[in-house]
């Protein structure tokens, strides 16, 4: 049942709008769908927590009751790289709709630098991630097992 708010909408925003709430236009055309806009400079997890939760943003972390707790991803050289790259994917989508968030753009730059270092370290130790990177190998290491779907118990990196 709809109950009328006691306070006008503007006051409500300031009082109850936390990081899990977004902004809506004060006046909007009819007959178009609306999703609240995520506010600029939202709270963020670090890269490991982001990978474990499936999002960089605590405000968007809305799990199902049967699996509410985040995964505990064991940190390996591969999962460390996956976590850095996940932040770039997630921030990239955020920046597609929030071009003017300078703080997010700066964070993107920082994670891009970390990812570049992490990728070089990983490839030097375990082999190429892209076919082009195989140029750094002595032989055609592109074909070396394991392929990504071939996780072997105890034999994974």
């Amino acid at each position: 049942m709809y109950t009328k708010p006691d306070k006008p909408a503007e006051d409500m925003d300031a009082a109850v709008c936390g990081d899990a709430c977004g902004t809506m236009p004060a006046c909007a055309p009819l007959a178009v769908p609306y999703v609240p806009f995520q506010q600029k400079e939202p709270k963020k997890y670090d890269h490991t927590e982001a990978l474990e939760n499936g999002t960089l943003f605590p405000g968007l972390n809305l799990p199902f009751h049967l699996k509410a707790k985040a995964a505990n991803v064991p940190m390996t050289p591969l999962s460390e790289l996956q976590a850095l790259e996940f932040v770039l994917v997630e921030l990239g989508l955020y920046l597609d709709t929030h071009q003017d968030d300078a703080q997010a753009m700066e964070l993107y730059r920082q994670y891009a630098a970390l990812e570049k270092e992490g990728r070089a370290r990983y490839e030097a130790a375990y082999g190429p991630i892209t076919q082009a990177a195989t140029a750094q190998s002595k032989s055609w290491a592109w074909l070396k097992d394991p392929w990504p779907w071939n996780y072997q118990e105890g034999g994974d990196k």
Binding site: V35, F37, A70
Partner: peptide, 26 residues
Amino acid sequence: NDVIRFLREREVVHFQRFGEAIALAK
């Protein structure tokens, strides 16, 4: 279930971004 939780959460984030995209387009 760890993997499914991750994939499910991605759907929530994508929903948010598509909603924002409608607002930007509008």
